[in-house]
């Protein structure tokens, strides 16, 4: 059988149109909902791992500075960590900077303090060591080295370092725990990252006055 075509038969009926539109809307709605859900899921996962990587970056920064530090102390609220470092690199403006030696390693000097050798990397014998302060500013973690501020992480809303002074071994270490609150999840349990770093140098007395916690 062959159907003839006529202009009158080419259009859909109203019912057909309504059904088709309903089906189309349903499909589009489902697609949109799925897309939004997928987008949210992807964003949440991306945010989770992005923040997790920043956690690792924070503890790596802290561990690096503590290892090469001369002393380390945390504030009473455990949200600020101060590390004293050797001034290993000659910087512009240092007393021993000559122009040509800026950016080069400094030769060490020797002092005997409390029946122990102190190897110092200082512009002059009266200079103080470099001071690095880790602090929280809003949702960011700041690292301030000799008043130069670097934001090393953001969206990590809780830095919880803990410093323990161990006299017995004449050393010192920091135990750091950092958590964050994932998107769409009220509980921050399960996001904690722990790190313990020991001073490689023999601990020295904390210089006074202590540097300010915030830049």
């Amino acid at each position: 059988m062959r159907l003839g075509s006529s202009l009158a038969a080419r259009a859909f009926t109203l019912v057909e149109m309504l059904i088709a539109m309903a089906i189309g809307v349903a499909i589009i709605a489902a697609t949109l909902t799925t897309s939004v859900a997928l987008q949210k899921s992807f964003y949440s996962v991306d945010n989770y791992f992005g923040t997790h990587i920043q956690q690792i970056r924070i503890v790596d920064y802290l561990a690096r500075d503590v290892r090469r530090g001369l002393s380390v102390v945390s504030s009473a609220d455990k949200h600020t960590v101060t590390v004293n470092l050797p001034r290993y690199i000659i910087q512009a403006g240092d007393a021993d900077a000559t122009g040509s030696n800026i950016g080069t390693p400094r030769a060490p000097s020797l002092a005997v303090v409390n029946r122990d050798y102190n190897i110092n990397y200082l512009p002059t014998s009266a200079s103080s060591s470099s001071v690095v302060v880790y602090s929280i500013s809003g949702s960011s973690i700041l690292r301030t080295e000799d008043n130069v501020v670097t934001m090393i992480a953001s969206s990590t809303d809780s830095l919880l370092p803990e410093t323990v002074d161990v006299e017995l071994a004449n050393t010192e270490y920091t135990t750091t725990a950092i958590t964050f609150q994932p998107l769409s999840v009220a509980d921050r349990n399960g996001t904690v990252v722990y790190s313990t770093a020991y001073l490689r140098n023999r601990r020295r007395a904390i210089p006074t006055p202590s540097p300010s916690a915030t830049p």
Partner: peptide, 21 residues
């Protein structure tokens, strides 16, 4: 640049992981 004033500002040497690692 080597020896430049900016060198003291470690911010000038990138951020994030490439500053650390």
């Amino acid at each position: 640049a080597f020896g430049s004033t900016q060198m003291k500002d470690i911010v000038a040497r990138s951020k994030g992981d490439s500053l650390l690692r």
